[in-house]
Design a protein around this nucleic acid. Structure first.
Length: 661
RNA sequence: GGGCCCAUAGCUCAAUUGGUUAGAGCCCCCGGCUCAUAACCGGGUUGUUCCUGGUUCGAGUCCAGGUGGGCCUACCA
């Protein structure tokens, strides 16, 4: 019995419109799901939307809509995008659905019963923009909110906590026992080292907004968005639930052979640490794999609204077709690595691999040789009478099938496609060396039949191997071969195994080329329509030549220097920061009404009393930053070599606050 | 500051885990073929495998140090 396979995408925050980043994750999950389905495994593919949070509440207000109406409206483009891209999810979860809310609360109760939830005062960094707390670790350099890029404040609120700290060791144990839990390996290393540092309890409720799921028994509080969002993976199946209560949950979670969460590398921590901890607490089994994929840039640049290269998938599907876009996503970059989405590259791959490689192979044999010489019928041959060249191709096909399967299982899509294209290339060589057109001329029908059959059967195999990535094109290919569409069936493994499955006598149906080549004019018009500039190669080179030389120098402008507000500061007070190894807290007179508090990481080199009375140089306009809970309003300059450190001291007694320049 | 990962042809990547002369694809040039979508096939050019040492009969692969890049993390500010 093939064990069930469950694959998920992240649920996308409905505040955004779908772009190729979303599309990339979703296509990958669809490919996984389709692959498992043709291998006969019961397969369930879940995607969906994260619809709660203050941001949504506020956006809805701006648009004068009820939050529910707003998210209903924003959800539609996602559904459409996945339909356009032929991503056949089995479930589409929305966190505002009644079932999801109930299940999140059920999970909460289980965690509460375990004794892992308690109410406490919460003091932490707070972003006014988000109206929510940020953990220290979420903050950007300089105590900035990662979303608003503005400084956060220290604020107290009453909040429910999850005893995440109790799960440090259980998580490490789980990682140890499941060495392929997180992929790629280097990401797993990051997760482990983060957990090894020790985990702090996690605030899991908010009182600052309403648009969320109420805490059971305390409706003043709304459940933390990540606890809400992560639960989608089981709530969509009806979980958490006791055995026998929810068939989907039993099949695809409790008894699943594999549970794979596909996520972007930015949300790995939530999936690899928090989520398993919640599940451990609630007594629910853990997923088997969390796969963090990389980011796509667009034509070499980071995708962003401000750069105007925010790429929705729709126009690309319109221009190239869903399958071609899917192919490109899966072919171009190694899954797990960062990559680039380049229109030019897509067209190159299309022409080189799809049109010239596969499309032309099918065309030359089906639409031409077979049609002209054998009435377009799949020939009947003696499989025992093949010659060495036939057997070589067959053996190539067999190894290719094996390899591709291995790569699909490992989500190494680009490798799987690589392998398949080696077979396509071998088939083209085979046609060249066997010269079926000569056989037709010489009227060597027996050999001609053998050759044609060998190529046709290879194409049939390819139509299966490629199916997860290009389902529609593969069915078109099969139609031209006179084959029915591929119909995944549970417990039936459709993956090629025995040579000779193509039925002799079937009527092939040559039709238009599968992948018509783009000529230069078409290429230009497509790029134009998509608003992509055609890089003028020569100009680019010329620019690179002239620009690179002078920009080589490392000088800055005088104005750049003047941006620094360097001043003389008189050290009035100095003391050690409690529990700190390195920090001294200095009170520094910089000619202002009150002394500044500046922290300096120099206590391994200076005793506090050595500094008082010294005139030092400070950077006065450095953005304030909190260290060990204390604000530092500037920076004291110091120089150090391998083992010594010296604060920069001013030689004469100029007034505190004097500008250094 | 601590840690993880990476560096191979102009570009994108392989190299069966230490084993012969480091390979593909794209690009470029030449030739062939003509069934086919200006396709296809063959041939050709490009390497100090980042550097320096070490282990070994043998190193792209292992070890040490360095350089460059990416990422995670922290009490640099």
């Amino acid at each position: 019995m093939a064990r069930p396979y469950y694959v998920t995408t992240p649920i996308y925050y409905v505040n955004d419109r779908p772009h190729i980043g979303h599309a990339y994750s979703t296509v990958a999950a669809d490919v996984v799901s389709r692959y498992q389905a043709i291998r006969g495994k019961p397969s369930y593919f879940l995607t969906g939307l994260d619809e709660h949070g203050l941001k949504i509440e506020r956006r809805a207000k701006e648009e004068a809509l009820a939050p529910q109406d707003f998210v209903d409206r924003m959800a539609a483009p996602f559904r459409e995008a996945w339909e356009e891209l032929d991503c056949q999810h089995h479930g589409f979860i929305r966190t505002t659905s009644a079932q999801h809310k109930e299940n999140v609360q059920a999970l909460w109760k289980r965690m509460e019963e375990r004794g892992d939830i308690y109410l406490d005062d919460y003091e932490d960094w707070y972003c006014v923009g988000c109206e929510s707390f940020k953990t220290e670790k979420e903050l950007l350099e300089g105590n900035l909110c990662p979303i608003h890029k503005k400084p956060v404040e220290r604020i107290k609120e009453r909040s429910y906590f999850f005893r995440l700290s109790n799960y440090t060791q259980p998580l490490l144990d789980y990682y140890e026992e499941h060495p392929d839990f997180v992929q790629p390996d280097s990401r797993f290393n990051e997760v482990k080292s983060f957990v090894r540092e020790g985990l702090r309890d996690l605030s899991i409720s908010r009182t600052s907004f309403r648009w969320g799921i109420p805490v059971p028994g305390d409706p003043e509080h709304v459940i933390y968005v990540w606890l809400d969002a992560l639960t989608n993976y089981i709530s969509a199946l009806g979980g958490p639930a006791e055995e026998g209560e929810e068939p989907l949950f039993d099949e695809f979670w409790r008894n699943a052979g594999t549970i794979t969460h596909i996520v972007g590398k930015d949300i790995l921590r939530f999936h690899a640490i928090y989520w398993p901890a919640f599940l451990l607490s609630a007594g629910v089994r853990l997923p088997t794999h969390v796969w963090a994929h990389g980011w796509l840039t667009v034509n070499g640049e980071k995708m962003s609204k401000s750069l105007g290269n925010f790429l929705p998938p729709g126009p690309l599907v319109e221009a190239f077709g869903a399958d071609v876009l899917r192919y490109y996503f899966m072919r171009e970059v190694g899954f797990g690595q960062d990559g680039d989405f380049s229109h030019r590259n897509l067209i190159n791959r299309y022409n080189g691999e799809l049109a010239n490689g596969l499309g032309n192979l099918m065309n030359r044999i089906v639409a031409s040789i077979l049609k002209k010489s054998l009435d377009g019928q799949v020939p009947s041959i003696d499989l025992g009478a093949l010659d060495d060249s036939d057997r070589a191709l067959i053996s190539k096909a067999q190894s290719s099938v094996e390899e591709a399967a291995k790569h699909y299982e490992a989500l190494a899509f680009h490798r799987a496609l690589d392998t398949i294209w080696e077979l396509v290339s071998a088939a083209n060589k085979y046609v060249d060396s066997t010269e079926p057109w000569m056989l037709a001329k010489q009227d060597d029908k027996t050999r001609l039949r053998q050759v044609c059959y060998t190529v046709l059967e290879t194409l049939r195999w390819v139509s299966i191997m490629l199916f997860p990535v290009m389902p529609q094109k593969c069915n078109e290919l099969r139609a031209q071969l006179g084959m029915p569409p591929l119909l995944p069936t549970e417990q039936v493994d459709l993956w090629p195994s025995a040579w000779g499955g193509l039925r002799p006598g079937a009527q092939t149906k040559p039709s238009t080329p599968l992948f018509p080549r783009f000529d230069e004019a078409q290429e230009r018009s497509i790029l134009e329509r998509l608003g992509v500039e055609r890089p003028a190669e020569d100009d680019k080179k010329a620019n690179a030549m002239t620009e690179s030389e002078p920009s080589k120098d490392d000088f800055i402008e005088f104005d750049d220097f003047m941006k620094l507000d360097l001043r003389v500061g008189l050290v009035k007070t100095a003391e050690r920061v409690e529990k700190s190894k390195k920090l001294l807290k200095l009170g520094i007179d910089a000619g202002e009404s009150a002394p500044r508090q500046i922290l300096a990481g120099i206590s391994e080199h200076y005793a506090p009393e050595d500094l008082v009375g010294k005139r030092v140089v400070i950077v006065a306009n450095l953005k304030p930053r909190k260290l060990m809970g204390l604000e530092s309003q500037g920076m004291v300059l110091a120089a150090s070599d391998d083992d010594r450190l010296s604060v920069l001291v001013v030689e004469r007694d100029v007034e505190p606050g004097s500008r250094a320049k």
